[in-house]
C-alpha cells in the first residue's frame, strides 16, 4: 500500500497520490504554466480538458520528471519528483504509467518485443514462460491477442494506442497518465479506447489523469474534471457541473 497524503476533499477524506502546488514552467519567453494546483486521488479518473497549447501535456511531463518546473512542487506518493535521485526517480516511474499521444511504440521491434522490453529491462524477468504469459494476458486485456507478431507499422492508430497502453499496463502501475488518448481516432475507436481506460481503472485499480479535448472521452472516463486555459486551471467539477457552467470558455467545449 502506498504511503500517500490524506487530504480533505468536499468534506470527505481521500488519499491524494499526486499533489501539485503552484506549478510554473516557461520555455524561453513562453510562459506555459502559471500557477497550477491540483490533486489526483486514489482510484480516481481526473480529466484535464483544454485547448491545444494550454500546458496540459507539460503538466503531466512534470509529474514524471521529463520536464523540471521553474516554480512550485510536484509530489507523487509523498515524494517530491524534482528532488529525487536518478535511481529513486526510476523506481517512482515504474509506479507511473504514461501513454503518449502517438502510442510511442518502438518501431524497430515487434509487438511482442515492445511488451517484453519493460519486463526484461525494468522488472528484470528472465523466465520466458512467465514473460509469455504476462504478454498474452495483457494483449487479451486490450483486445489484441492476434497482433503479437506484428510490427508497429502494420498497426492502425487505435491499435497502436492499445498496444501502447498494454506496454504501460504490463508493469502494473498505480497511476496512469494519458496524453490525448483519443486524438486522431474515429469516433468508434475513440469510444473503445475511452471504455478501455475505464476498464483499466476497474480491473487494475489505477488512478488516472487523462489529458484530452475530446468531450465524448471525458464523458465516459471522468470522475472529476479540470479545465485549463493559458497555463491556469479555470474550472473544476464533475462532467455535469461543467456542462452547465456559465463560463463561456468552459461551456464552449460542450457545444
Amino acid at each position: 500500500m502506498s504511503n500517500t497524503t490524506k487530504s480533505k476533499i468536499k468534506g470527505g477524506e481521500q488519499e491524494a497520490v499526486i499533489k501539485i502546488n503552484g506549478l510554473a514552467k516557461s520555455f524561453g519567453a513562453n510562459e506555459v504554466l502559471k500557477d497550477i494546483n491540483l490533486e489526483l486521488h486514489k482510484e480516481e479518473n481526473l480529466v484535464i480538458l483544454g485547448k491545444s497549447g494550454t500546458g496540459k501535456s507539460v503538466t503531466i511531463k512534470c509529474i514524471v520528471g521529463l520536464l523540471t518546473q521553474d516554480k512550485g512542487n510536484v509530489t507523487v506518493f509523498d515524494e517530491e519528483v524534482d528532488k529525487l535521485s536518478e535511481d529513486d526517480l526510476k523506481a517512482l516511474r515504474i509506479r507511473i504509467g504514461f501513454l503518449f499521444q502517438s502510442g510511442a511504440l518502438y518501431d524497430s521491434m515487434t509487438v511482442r518485443e515492445n511488451l517484453e522490453f519493460p519486463l526484461r529491462r525494468v522488472l528484470k524477468l528472465k523466465d520466458k514462460n512467465d514473460i509469455d504469459k504476462r504478454i498474452e494476458e495483457i494483449l487479451e486485456g486490450v483486445g489484441l491477442p492476434d497482433a503479437i507478431d506484428k510490427m508497429p507499422s502494420e498497426l492502425s492508430g487505435g491499435m497502436r494506442k492499445r498496444i501502447g497502453l498494454a506496454r504501460t499496463m504490463i508493469l502494473k502501475p498505480e497511476i496512469m497518465l494519458y496524453d490525448e488518448p483519443t486524438t486522431g481516432l474515429d469516433p468508434i475507436t475513440s469510444k473503445e479506447i475511452s471504455e478501455l481506460i475505464q476498464s483499466m481503472k476497474k480491473n487494475y485499480h489505477v488512478s488516472s489523469i487523462i489529458i484530452t479535448h475530446d468531450i465524448a472521452c471525458a464523458k465516459i472516463t471522468a470522475d472529476r474534471m479540470l479545465v485549463m486555459d493559458s497555463g491556469k486551471i479555470i474550472a473544476e467539477g464533475s462532467f455535469d457541473e461543467l456542462e452547465n457552467s456559465k463560463e463561456k470558455l468552459v461551456n464552449s467545449f460542450f457545444k
Partner: peptide, 21 residues
Amino acid sequence: SMKVTEQVEAMEVSGGNPIQY
C-alpha cells in the same frame, strides 16, 4: 526520429534506460 515520435521519452518514463539501450 525516435525522439520526435516520443519513443525515447517512452523508454525513459517506463523506467528503462535509453542511454544504456
